[in-house]
Design a binder for these strands. Structure first.
Length: 221
DNA sequence: GACCAGGCACATC
DNA sequence: GATGTGCATGGT
């Protein structure tokens, strides 16, 4: 299924961040984007990140100093701006506390330590934590999202009761332990999901169309 | 004008 | 422990 998606869409080059930015800025931008994109279309997140960049706020120190209400105004286009402003402040406070805001050192720890630390931040759940680990830290942690579950349910590879952890274990246990593969795998799933596996989307033309599937399978309560 | 988006925390039962 | 609800903008 991965090869079918990859043949269609090519390398997705995720995470979509400023490639010219220095490593610490790029890592921070990915973390910020991961929080802002919670239940939100990426096009809206782009506007919020552009506002942050224009305000010089894509910086640990600047974000730590920025009051939540001012931050909320900057990220308004991303939706849920009041909750997300708090979530960003919670995350930034944790990074700022760790060795003076050295985000690369913060991200440079073991996956287990980092994941536990991220999940302790209010506003960072499993998917956001795994996105930060895989895309900002460049370490092995499979990202499961709504599209992943929807696609796997339609293809009867998981049941309606499977939760985040069981889906993650299925994928992590089935695939080679390769950061570049897990990176692009999730990106391919999102691209496929966006075009062919939304509630209102149609299957014809989907790169996974030839694999056994039942579009009704994910509509069960 | 509905419906939906790369979730998460918290209240309530 | 399971289920329901608030959060909010912008594209289709």
């Amino acid at each position: 299924m991965y090869e079918a998606m990859r043949a269609r869409f090519g390398d997705r080059h995720w995470w979509p961040a400023d490639r010219a930015a220095p490593p610490d800025r790029k890592a921070l931008e990915i973390c910020v984007g991961a929080i802002l994109t919670q239940n939100t279309a990426w096009t809206n997140v782009e506007k919020a990140i552009a506002n942050l960049r224009a305000a010089g706020a894509l910086d640990v120190g600047a974000l730590a100093a920025l009051p939540a209400p001012a931050l909320a105004e900057l990220i308004r286009p991303a939706g849920y701006f009041n909750v997300k402003a708090k979530r960003l402040k919670n995350f930034i406070a944790r990074v700022h506390d760790y060795r003076g805001g050295d985000i690369l050192a913060f991200l440079g720890r073991s996956v287990d330590t980092l994941r536990e630390d991220l999940l302790a931040v209010s506003g960072i759940g499993a998917e956001t934590a795994d996105s930060i680990i895989l895309y900002a830290a460049g370490k092995l942690s499979f990202v499961v999202d709504a599209y992943t579950c929807r696609i796997l349910r339609r293809h009867k590879l998981i049941g309606p009761d499977d939760d985040y952890t069981s889906v993650q274990e299925l994928l992590a246990g089935s695939l080679p332990k390769d950061v570049a593969l897990w990176n692009d795998y999730h990106a391919q799933i999102v691209e496929t999901g966006k075009h062919y596996c939304r509630p209102t989307a149609r299957c014809p033309g989907c790169p996974l169309e030839g694999f056994p599937h039942d579009p009704q399978a994910d509509k069960e309560p």
